[in-house]
Computed example of a mutant assay.
Amino acid sequence: MTKYATLASITDVLLDPTTTPQLRRDTIEIYRDLLLTASGVDLGDAASVDHVDTGKGVAIGMTWAALCVDDMIRTQRFVTGLHRAIQDVAARRGGPVHVLYAGTGPFVTLALPLMTRFTPQQLQFTCIEINPASLRAAQRVIQQLGFEDFIADFIEADAATYVIDTPRPIDIVLSETMQYCLIDEMQVPITLNLMAQLPEETILIPEQIRLSLVVLDEAGDKIVAELGPIFSVDKNSLRIHSIGAANADFPTVRLPVPIHVPPAKLELTSGPLAIRTGITVYGEEVLYDYDSGLTIPKIIGDYPSAEDPLEAIDFTYHLAPSPLLWMDFVVPEAVAAE
């Protein structure tokens, strides 16, 4: 079987909503092997492991970016969501759909499968990558698979500061440059920068990332209650922030943490507090709790009690000096005065 035929069969599985977990696992393993062979990447090389400090945040090292393909449900949902977005754009106008892929990593993982479903006359990618080793690997993958005609440009740049200068209008911005709870990585600065330069109709993938405060069970492996929303990244929130001060912090959100929380059966012996990450990739393609490494709740502390009281938590998403969700635990005044 040729490399193209192998990738086409991989795409068939990734786009099939009835794919079984075992078939998905086997298919992702084949996909990883194909990518490693085509890229020539040595995942054990010391230089590949190191992260890139952009000065405003962290771009993960080439090895870790490459291993994201193993987050199987994430890979499948993003490929499927991108496919549907491309179809939606193509249905309303002629000419190639132009995707700006910010943070391709060494494999161009989310774009490659769709190059077996469309022609270069139907689909074009502009690829941005800050890590020069990852960029070179991505170029090798495209060359090895014979997909050069799908690439409008490869750009070595920080997508968080890149000024868009392409002759063809951009229809879709694809950027999956995050960890759970938007820790460290550049998802927010990148999408804030790029979407501020594009018209309202431009599609953003993922469409929405939602952070919320939740309570887990005592074992810490199941969500039993949600206390409220913390932060949302979507076209609307990004545009509102851009109209104000694009480099300023996002507004602080204060969430009370009462001792008794619905449902009523939740007792003082509640499990830990955690931050939940919900991701809508596009349309009906959603990553739910525990589907992915991106949607595992992050434990931030014990649930309050009479002996260890807590009034509220203030959450502020900082852009500078680096992306960070800052938390300030607010204790009752009487406790604070002691």
Rank of each mutant, 00 (worst) to 15 (best):
T280D: 09
D45H: 14
K265G: 00
S322I: 02
A8C: 03
L204W: 10
L15M: 02
L255G: 10
G105V: 10
S9I: 01
S232H: 02
L194N: 04
Q124R: 15
V58I: 15
V79D: 08
L110H: 14
R254G: 00
R117P: 10
A245C: 10
D328V: 01
Q87V: 12
P323G: 08
G81D: 04
R276K: 15
S175F: 06
M178H: 12
D16L: 04
G105K: 11
F315W: 12
F147H: 12
V13S: 07
L36M: 12
L268I: 11
P304S: 05
G293Q: 06
K265V: 12
P189N: 06
V261F: 05
R136A: 15
V331I: 13
A306E: 13
D153I: 01
T280F: 03
V49H: 10
T80R: 13
Y4S: 05
V13I: 15
M72H: 08
F125Y: 14
A102Y: 01
L211I: 13
V331M: 11
Q122H: 01
I170Q: 11
V52E: 07
Q143L: 06
T280G: 02
T116D: 10
D314H: 13
P272Q: 09
L174R: 03
E148L: 14
I155R: 10
I30L: 11
T19S: 14
